[in-house]
Amino acid sequence: MRALSAVNLLLALGLSPLLLGIINRTKAVISGRSGRPLLQVYFDLAKLLGKGAVYSRTTTWVFKAGPIVGLAAVLAALAVLPLGGVPALVAFPGDVFVLVAFLGLARFALICGALDTGSSFEGMGASREAAFSALAEPALLLALLVFVSRTGTYSLSRMYVWPGAGDWLASGPVLILVVIALFILLLSENSRIPVDDPNTHLELTMIHEVMVLDHGGPDLAFILYAAALKLWLFSALVVGAAVPTGLGSPLLDELAMLAGMGMCAVAVGLVESTMARLRLPRVPQLLTAAGAFAALALAILGR
């Protein structure tokens, strides 16, 4: 089991950029283009890691610390993330809350790095990021509280044993609500459409992209990789709720989970192909809706 946990962590480290590739490929196929290579993100990372850097004269150590702390925090969060009924490398009671705190640290580092440039555009992105993620946080914790409440455990590795085979028949409505809530949070926390458009070229409409305008070279590579890992992390949370564990053999579970991760990326691609970005004042409504789904799931479970 320990070996399998380590394998899962390595899979996350290795395959997370692939998720972005799948999303882009899905969008390309739907719009009838041939699109970028599936492995484009790997090429980008390699290219960026090989470059030098240019720093603004305004910036201080905070700017340089931002990408490092951000990547470290996401890596630390990955250490407590289970996949497919296989416990995480590190599991302890309360790790579900610590995971959220690590994601908060990554955000703090990114926002401070953006503000360190003194650019009004980056200030704008930082302000939006802080506002939207403040609203996303209660929704995320409520969604995870469904698992706590259902299993009576406080560690992600132990609570994500639910849903097992057959649980979808017993508590289908709850699971659907949780999956929807977590999926909305995946979209918003990873700056995907309909909250933020990763492909836009107008700085005024950006959230995440505008915060990293001034980063380059290895710093940008760190940020890009951290974003990919964060996408993997949220996908794992969604897939863990959607795909039942305990299908018979560990190998079968593992394959089901990986297939689920792929499907999740395709689903993100489908959403991005069919929806437009929401107007910014509408985003809080989307996040409130995610919170509403999670609260409803809790209510049904808790009665």
Partner: peptide, 21 residues
Amino acid sequence: GYNFSVILGIVGLLVSLWLEH
């Protein structure tokens, strides 16, 4: 506002659960 309406709706749901209880 719409957000507050939805939040009030959730509060209404919680009150309803309590009432039922």
